[in-house]
Design a protein around this nucleic acid. Structure first.
Lengths: 233, 233
DNA sequence: AGAATAGTGTCTGTCAGACAGTATCGC
DNA sequence: GCGATACTGTCTGACAGACACTATTCT
């Protein structure tokens, strides 16, 4: 087969970067990778990689592949945020980065860390204090912003939750994303309204019949995401 | 200088496409280009072109350049919608298209048509009945959707308006974008609230002192966009 | 009983929808 | 006056914020 070659300068590098979010007791967390190689060696970056047109069906598929290869997880939700482009954002030359965000249920966070212990860290998404590579600081801010806007518009980030969860746990997740505390009564009123939606409206939330979370206090009703739920406002 | 060549298959084509919207008496309009050459000759497409890394500072700059070169307008507002990518969306091979939308004031619509009379047409954005090239039908739908969402969230599409305009004209523009009719009283109440915002809040709308539009009925107060207005919810 | 968390009830202010009413122009 | 469009007033219901209250568990 004849090799079809082109001038390098006429084609930009194309990469995908992913902000994977999770929520734990200390708030909204994002996964950063410590760069072991040049360029930007020693700085922290969002996980990412180059598009491989011979392997990837689409840019989103590339993002999914990168997550599996580098981090060892397949996330339930993956969504495009925006692109970053230009001559100077990467020292290697004109490049395009397509940014995605992903949501990982908190009960899968440990699996990630175990897979690639050394180079990967879950950090506070808003206040990590690490020096970030390229324009990834902007990337992260944009990703947080998109996620926040969706939750503010009453989209429920159920992909962050384990299979069964309490209303309080869900409220904590929303609070972590929004960066403020919500009124319990108001929050529950909204969820109740969702659950009691009449067809053709479909509720996102389903009561897990009879199941309760038992702790050191009054047990709480458990809920789960509707079958086929997607995180679209 | 030595030519640095690479294998063509490892780099996708990168192009930008732009949905330019305007509003006239018959509703929301978008500019389509009749394709004179293969591929997809004879079909209608959104204006677009290949990224030129040696010329364009960013993808957005590329979109702006394409608009100026092909359509002869520099639009006040240009915003990224999303990307489309894959092996099959363009018969020439693996490609990425970054979609933008632009807003053109209605008093500049004629200028466009004059510049490139033959190959360009303003059509009803939702109901044009034309056969579209590539996946540009999806592009258009996504662009309309993003625009609509912004207006539904109370962003004012002032970039669509001429310098001075009446509240009714602005209401017609919003109605065209949303595809439904709004209550006059409700609409004006919202705008009044905007105009009377107290610092540090800044109103988007400014009353043009003394100026009225004189027609065959009661004259209407004229308004203009705030200096430095940008279309961000 | 007391601590802790689950879950409810209710008041209030804000705002959107609906729609009727008044004002001011040309003819 | 009449048609037409500009502009205002007001009633209503939905809903968010605030906050106090009750309920059920464990120790």
């Amino acid at each position: 087969m004849q090799l079809n070659t082109i001038r390098r300068e006429l084609y930009p590098s194309v990469m995908v970067d992913i902000a994977i979010f999770s929520v734990d007791e200390s708030g909204l967390r994002v996964l950063l990778v410590h760069r072991a190689n040049e360029p930007q060696k020693g700085l922290w970056a969002l996980p990412g990689g180059f598009l491989k047109p011979d392997v990837d069906a689409t840019l989103e598929a590339a993002a999914r592949r990168v997550l599996i290869e580098k981090i060892g997880v397949d996330t339930p939700h993956l969504e495009e945020v925006c692109t970053f482009s230009g001559k100077d954002r990467d020292p290697r030359g004109w490049s395009i980065s397509v940014l995605f965000f992903a949501l990982l249920p908190r009960d899968q966070v440990q699996a990630v860390v175990k897979a690639k212990v050394d180079a990967v860290e879950w950090v506070d998404a808003r206040n990590h204090g690490l020096a970030m590579a390229f324009d990834h600081s902007d990337h992260l801010n944009r990703a947080i912003d998109v996620l926040k806007r969706k939750v503010a518009r009453h989209a429920l980030p159920l992909h962050l939750m384990p299979t069964n969860f309490t209303m309080t746990a869900l409220q904590r997740a929303c609070e972590a994303i929004l960066g403020l505390s919500l009124d319990k009564s108001v929050f529950r009123r909204r969820l109740k309204a969702d659950i009691e939606k009449q067809p053709p409206e479909i509720p996102d939330l389903v009561e897990v019949a009879g199941a309760t979370e038992t702790g050191h206090q009054r047990p709480a009703q458990l809920y789960k995401a509707r079958e086929g739920f997607v995180f679209l406002e």
